[in-house]
């Protein structure tokens, strides 16, 4: 099957059209990164307490569960799925940690167990989605309720505290010589790994293909179900581990830990420019989105702006982040096609 010599003469690479590439410059993840820098500089200039090491490490520490869970969530959204049960898995892990610690287990035994439990929570989601072909939105709304319920079953409304100091230190301490808390350092490492997987490996290529056109990916021999299943499991594991960090950071295991966190995670991922319909997005964008939400919240807090306003800002950012690309695309389309065709309005 060597290329046929007779056709090589064709000048295949001759440019047919020269479409201007301005589109590339206004990618959403670039805008978010720019926004992040603006917010940071603005904050540093306008708010004295902002750019201090203490404050930054506090802000990062406060953000780490959202940041960690955002990594597998990004992959899931890229393949066109979503996991709403992450915060409940976090809460369940926290409740289990409390209950087992209360029962005299050692942290060293509990944590591996929690990881396994996390994997099982993800496996349940993944099997329901891939084996039964159910929409992940419906499935994970169900397991969101289920896992949170189980958290209450395990711990009730009790709060378990007084975890060993050395572990609490791990959750709140910073890497020596930097303002970076240990959990956030873990995030950095995992973010790099995720970025490589998503953007440089065959698995990442496959994920984008699945999200953009699942049927075509399946026809190309990609094991769509297996990849999705794996991603749900990873999501469960990371959520469970985030539950451990959350518990140690606040020094309190409760069944309602992390309530509502799933929405913050999704907000961060979408703000980072990942297309909710799948197939498009960058991990860099997500990291910028996570940081932007974190810094913005921190800034507003430092400036004594009510926490409620922070929620409004998050909501507006979320809407703007999905609205802007559509409007830009619409305007571009209208300019290219003055009497634009209706066919562009596919659902």
């Amino acid at each position: 099957m060597a290329p046929d010599a007779s056709v090589k003469t064709a000048s295949a690479a001759a440019p047919v059209t020269a479409t201007p590439r301005v589109g590339r410059l206004v990618r959403w993840d670039v805008i978010v990164t720019a926004l992040l820098i603006v917010v940071f500089i603005g904050g540093a200039l306008g708010t004295p307490d902002f750019a201090t090491g203490d404050n930054l490490s506090f802000a990062l520490d406060d953000l780490c569960e959202i940041a960690l869970i955002a990594l597998p969530m990004t992959l899931l959204v890229v393949v066109g799925e979503v996991d709403l049960s992450v915060a409940s898995a976090l809460g369940m892990s926290s409740a289990l940690l409390g209950a087992l610690w209360d029962a005299g287990w050692a942290i060293e035994t509990i944590v591996p167990l929690l990881i396994v439990v996390g994997a099982v929570t993800g496996l349940v989601n993944g099997l329901l989605v891939t084996r039964l072909g159910l929409p992940s939105l419906a499935v994970t709304i169900g397991t969101l309720t289920l896992y949170r319920g189980l958290a209450y079953v395990v711990l009730g409304t009790k709060a378990v505290a007084e975890f060993p100091q050395n572990y609490a230190d791990l959750a709140t301490g910073t890497v020596p010589g930097t303002p970076i808390p240990y959990p956030f350092a873990l995030f950095i490492v995992l973010a790099i790994i995720t970025a490589v997987v998503l953007h440089a490996t065959g698995a990442g290529r496959a994920m984008f293909a699945i999200g953009a056109q699942e049927e075509a990916a399946f026809f190309a021999g990609i094991r769509v179900k297996r990849i999705k299943l794996l991603l749900f499991v990873v999501s469960g594991v990371v959520s469970a581990f985030a539950g451990v960090i959350y518990t140690l950071r606040y020094g309190s295991a409760r069944a309602d830990n992390g309530l509502g966190l799933e929405l913050a995670v999704i907000a961060a991922v979408l703000l980072g420019g990942v297309d909710f319909d799948g197939g498009r997005g960058t991990l860099g964008g997500v990291v910028a989105g996570v940081l932007l939400i974190g810094l913005l919240r921190n800034l507003l807090m430092l400036r004594d702006v009510a926490t409620e306003i922070q929620s409004i800002v998050t909501g507006l950012l979320l809407i703007v982040s999905v609205l802007t690309p559509r409007i830009v695309a619409g305007v571009r389309e209208a300019r290219r096609h003055p009497r634009g065709s209706m066919s562009a309005s596919s659902q």
Binding site: A209, A212, A216, G279
Partner: peptide, 15 residues
């Protein structure tokens, strides 16, 4: 089924 329409030529061939 044949192509990922948003994907690039090289990535489609490589898939």
């Amino acid at each position: 089924q044949g192509l990922v329409m948003d994907g690039t030529i090289e990535r489609n061939i490589g898939l």
